[in-house]
Amino acid sequence: MRVLPKNYEKKVSENSTMSKKKLSKSRFDGVKPIGKPLFLLAPGVLWLLIFGLAPLLFMLMMSFWTSSIFGTKPDFSFDNFSRVFFTELYRDQLIKTLRIAFMTTMLTLIISYPVAFLLSRLQGLRKAFFVLLIFLPFWTSYVIRAFVWLPILGRNGAINNFLQSLGVIDAPLDWLLFNEGSVFLGLVYVYTLFMTLPIYLSLEKIDGALVEAATDLGAKPFSVFYRIILPLSWPGVLSGCIMVFLLTVGAFVTPQLLGGPSGIMYGNVIASQFLANNNWAFGSALSISLILIVMILLAISSRWIGVQHVFTGGKET
């Protein structure tokens, strides 16, 4: 046993409190809090209010107004909404748009998963090169990426010219463009990256040791994929699906350029109300309806596919 000075402990404790006091003084002296930290959020909240929420609220308000050839005037009428849901034309258009969005999502998923998987398997410079290749088209404008299909698929486009020069066809094919199929093609092409990227990132995050552990425990390559890789990349798949679905549901430029009369989507209907028919009230009602339906769909699907994983990075909450 060692013998300590009698007042050793006392001294030590005195010292420590003294140093604490000193510390707190030196750290906070002269610094006064500006206000409750919540106020620091003000610029962001304001920005959101002005540029995000306000237009949306205004649109919601306007959807209850009435438009006529004399202009749009304030009102509280559900006429616009009953027209949206009970006119066959608009209802069919809505269903068709949801169908196209769903199919596009599935198609991009089928294309993107293998691509993302292969990409995640590559190493070093090759990986960088292929990631760059995939990004390359996205350095140009979205409109140009949709527009580029016109000279490819058009009557005097690349495909028709090629087939004619080979003698496979006599007259140019005119079903290549301006129908639902060409809209699909355009949408899939334009939005694939929004699917590939989140899947690729979630595959990249998977620890290689997990794959080794599964193999070690007797899982053959297919089982490893099905039981380890697929479930762990599921959050990426979901966020990709949600993003592509949301983007295609509101698509406007692609169907405008490639769709023709039969390839029209909801976005075009909405746009025509604002731009051609000058019926802002009805256009607003169409927009609000679409937003509501998408939100309801998301809420329903979250019940059985765990959409919350997208926002929590795959962790249980």
């Binding site: 040791a209 552990a213 070690d216 425990l217 479930p231 762990l232």
Partner: peptide, 20 residues
Amino acid sequence: LPPYERSTNMIFQHLALFPH
């Protein structure tokens, strides 16, 4: 012989438990 056909099992350095 691939790992899944061997009568060996490994405890990995960082355990590699399946998080899902």
